[in-house]
Structure formats: structure tokens, C-alpha cells
């Protein structure tokens, strides 16, 4: 299942610069980035092409980073696209903890990425409802 890198960061100037620098120096390419903020600190979440390498590079530089399982589902890049996927989740009483999305270059598709308690169950429900769940290798190569 796909993974994102989650990074603990103080809410201070220069934090993204530092992390992006470490990833860049290690030849890691980013697909998407989002930050959830809680005042003094926040969690930076990054989808990269090589999550294990990226996470290890950050840890070696003393950064508090960890890999987190996520669900990535393909949706139509058109009005109502996310509504279809999220109604499946709502119907099955699945709570989305944290989410972001991005569109795929050159296509009319988008990817909705989110954290849930039970990744495997959520993936199964989405597949059964006819959605394309993106596997890890596929996601990193998008």
C-alpha cells in the first residue's frame, strides 16, 4: 500500500527549505506536499517517488520523520468527481483523518489521497465500489 512521509516540524521559517533541500540532495522527487498546522508545530506530509529512501535521508539528517500508510484513489477530474468517492466512504462510515489531492498530468483524472484508521478495509470498499485504488509503485511513478 502507498506511503507518504510525515515530518514533524516547528512552525518557523526555513523548515520547508531544509526538508526540500535534503530530499533534493538525495535525488528524491516530490509528487504532492501538504502541511497540517497546529500553532507552534505542524506535520508536513509529502508524497515522493522513493518514500523509504526519502524517509531514511531525513532521519539521517536528524529530522523526526516517519512513513505513514495512505489510501490513494483515482477520481474523475470533473465536477462531482470527489463527491462520488467520498459518498462511498460516508456510506461505509469511514472517517477521513487528513486528505489532499492532485491532478494527473495530461489526463482528466485526479488522485485523492487520505489517511484513515483502516487502510486495507477502505481500499477494499473503494475497489468494490468500482474505484481505482492506486498501488504504491504506480503512485510513485505518476
Amino acid at each position: 500500500m502507498p506511503k507518504q512521509i510525515s515530518i514533524f516540524a516547528e512552525n518557523k521559517p526555513g523548515k520547508i527549505e531544509k526538508i526540500a533541500g535534503i530530499l533534493g540532495d538525495n535525488g528524491i522527487n516530490m509528487r504532492a506536499i501538504t502541511i497540517s498546522d497546529s500553532g507552534d508545530y505542524g506535520i508536513i506530509k509529502i508524497l515522493v517517488d522513493k518514500p523509504v529512501d526519502g524517509c531514511n535521508a531525513l532521519k539521517a539528517a536528524g529530522v523526526a520523520a516517519t512513513l505513514k500508510d495512505i489510501v490513494a484513489v483515482r477520481i474523475d477530474d470533473s465536477p462531482g468527481g470527489l463527491h462520488k468517492a467520498s459518498s462511498v466512504l460516508a456510506k461505509n462510515d469511514i472517517n477521513v483523518d487528513d486528505a489532499y489531492g492532485f491532478t494527473i498530468r495530461g489526463g482528466n483524472e485526479a488522485v485523492f489521497v487520505f489517511q484513515v484508521k483502516d487502510v486495507i478495509k477502505t481500499e477494499k470498499i473503494l475497489v468494490e465500489a468500482g474505484f481505482g485504488v492506486v498501488g504504491d509503485q504506480e503512485l510513485y511513478l505518476l
Binding site: S6, G42, I43, K59, G62, A64, A65, T66, K68, D98
Partner: peptide, 14 residues
Amino acid sequence: LYSKMFSGDMKELN
């Protein structure tokens, strides 16, 4: 924060 105990979860941090 102790790196090894970081789970990537904001709620846990709070």
C-alpha cells in the same frame, strides 16, 4: 520530540 516515537499523527502530538 523523540524521533523514534513520532507516529506522524497530529492528534497524538496534541
